[in-house]
Design a protein around this nucleic acid. Structure first.
Lengths: 242, 242
DNA sequence: CGTCCTTTTGATCCGCGTCAAAGGGAGTGG
DNA sequence: CCACTCCCTTTGACGCGGATCAAAAGGACG
């Protein structure tokens, strides 16, 4: 199993063997955590950069009325922000959706790494820019698209991201999300999400059984969701879309 | 008139005179542009980092159905992303809401600046993290709050941001936004925005006349909008809230 | 004074949230 | 192997809030 961070950054610049080794060394200490645990809570003082090696996590905020907004999914190869130490206090929490393996990178190691590996440093900034661009796209997606397109768009995005780190088998991948969690992401309740999923199945765009999602007709899925992959800023070497 | 970027970063770390001079020098070439113009368009290859010195701008995307989503406001002191060059192509546009003065910073100058001014570099990263945190808060705001709270929250945020760069006189500041633009930001149509504004006025929380907004009762405005300023990561030196 | 844009008001309608309850599936323990 | 629990998915019914359509009023500007 190759390091998913290497796989991901390799989609931005071809990495040398030395650089790959450096990335491997970066996430020295790895830890296993269980689904449902929080990696960080709102109000915490960030202590380490977290690198997700295996499993799914999500950024979220709880609201006074008991509601929850999910603002990002982290999949293998994703880092919570590399400059996290600059902040005195977390403004949101990060929870785990599945049992996961994470790497913990202390501030000093991170800073040193950025200083000594300019190309990798650049690649990590690229990844930060993509995270921000993804937030913007989510804003547009959730506010401007109909529920059906909205769900389709999110599934399409996760499919492309999972593909970029080599975690799609055939056109099938893990999607450890309940319908409630999907709803908390895109501003729908679970009843509506359920009905949309049924329509996506009826139109033979996807199958979703247990926690496995299959894309049956990628082209149409991207078309109906008005999916423009430009915000992921993937390497044109890797043909997007199919 | 002090440089608003200095004012802004000074809210993060106290700057030395040398550092202030360096920041002033950074935005050497300044240009005036008119309201309605686009600074950058989706698809463009970014050529320069833009620093807004005077006026308002906004990040947006156009959707195939003619809709528009506004994803950020830039006010004096704001930079479009300092690592923008890393991207091959803009995934959104930036337009001007008012006649504006901007500084244009070439890639080379930006990189050199970051390399030679570690404290300022850190402050600029802080500002990037705040931008991202703001996007997350907007996601939660627009998807989880009622129209009334939603508008109140946005106004409260702009008030605090304007205050941070010294552009609030008394409790009054420029807000060069139409009700349609407000709606395009928070996922409402202009009719609903209009009715919400009337209610905000009726409850004596604000006045809004022309392009001037006054906060009449900051405490209640923050309370009704469930405003938690933590995502702006302002310096505790500057008392938030009032 | 006329044009254009923005704000304001009124009326209608339907999509999605909410409430409620039944069905399924996985895991646990007897 | 069955019984029981717990969580998630699925289905149905209802009501309301905000989108939409339409038009009038207000303001800025030449």
């Amino acid at each position: 199993m190759t390091n998913p961070l290497i796989r991901k950054l390799d989609a931005f610049v071809r990495l040398s063997d030395d650089e790959k080794k450096a990335l491997d060394a970066l996430c020295g200490r790895t830890v296993v955590r269980r689904a449902g645990e929080d990696l960080i809570r709102e109000g915490d003082r960030p202590e380490e950069v977290i690198l997700l090696l295996e499993g799914w996590a999500f950024r979220y905020k709880l609201l006074p009325d008991g509601g929850r907004q999910i603002m990002a999914y982290l999949i293998p190869g994703d880092l919570c922000d590399i400059h996290i130490f600059i902040l005195k206090e977390m403004d949101h929490s990060i929870g785990l959706l599945s049992d996961s393996t994470i790497g913990l990178i202390p501030e000093k190691a991170m800073v040193e790494f950025l200083d000594t590996h300019p190309r990798l440093s650049r690649a990590l900034f690229w990844s930060t820019l993509v995270d921000e661009a993804t937030l913007r796209e989510w804003l547009a997606n959730t506010l401007r698209r109909e529920p059906f397109e909205r769900v389709a768009h999110l599934l399409a995005e996760m499919w492309m991201r999972m593909k970029a780190v080599g975690l799609v088998q055939g056109e099938t991948f893990d999607l450890p999300l309940t319908q409630t969690e999907l709803g908390d992401t895109i501003g729908l309740n679970s009843v509506t999400v359920n009905r949309v999923l049924q329509r996506l199945r009826a139109e033979e765009l996807i199958t979703l059984k247990g926690e496995r999602l299959s894309i049956l007709d990628a082209k149409r899925l991207l078309a109906v969701s008005d999916f423009n992959p430009n915000y992921l800023h993937l390497d044109p070497r890797q043909p997007a879309g199919r």
